[in-house]
Structure formats: C-alpha cells, structure tokens
C-alpha cells in the first residue's frame, strides 16, 4: 500500500486549523482577523510547499502491504 505524505501533512494541518476554530468558537480565546489571515496563508503555503517538495518522490511503499 502506498504511503502519501502530502495527505498526512495536509490532514494534520487542516485538523489543526479545525482545532483553532473550535477553541475560538468555544470561547477559549479569540484570534483576530489579521492573525487568522497569517495562519491560513501559512497553512495553505505549507501544504503547497510539502506538495511541491514531495512531488516526484510519489511517497513510499508501506512494508507488509
């Protein structure tokens, strides 16, 4: 079975964004629009960066699959 690191990294980043939204919506703390723009841009940039770096490698095979 092939392992896709881009999906893994993207999933972690998106789950982290969801956690941030959850804490904000639950009233834990409030992040301003300016900082949210920084966070979202960074997250999207990170996904693009990982996707570009891993392109060509095509991931790897998981042992035993």
């Amino acid at each position: 079975m092939r392992f896709d690191p881009v999906s893994l990294a993207s999933g972690v980043v998106i789950a982290a964004l969801g956690a941030l939204l959850l804490i904000d919506s639950a009233g834990g703390f409030h992040i301003s629009l300016g900082w949210m723009a920084v966070v979202l841009t960074g997250a999207v940039g990170l996904i693009f960066l990982l996707s570009g770096l891993i392109r060509g490698n095509g991931g790897g095979d998981l042992e035993g699959d």
């Binding site: 079975m1 092939r2 392992f3 896709d4 690191p5 881009v6 999906s7 893994l8 993207s10 999933g11 972690v12 980043v13 998106i14 789950a15 982290a16 964004l17 969801g18 991931g59 998981l62």
Partner: peptide
C-alpha cells in the same frame, strides 16, 4: 483532517 491523515496510509 483526521480522515485525510488516515487516508495517507491507504494511498492518500
């Protein structure tokens, strides 16, 4: 996000 991360181990 969690589903996406888990799907990474099954081809992405």
């Amino acid at each position: 996000g969690a589903l996406l991360a888990l799907a990474a181990f099954r081809g992405g």
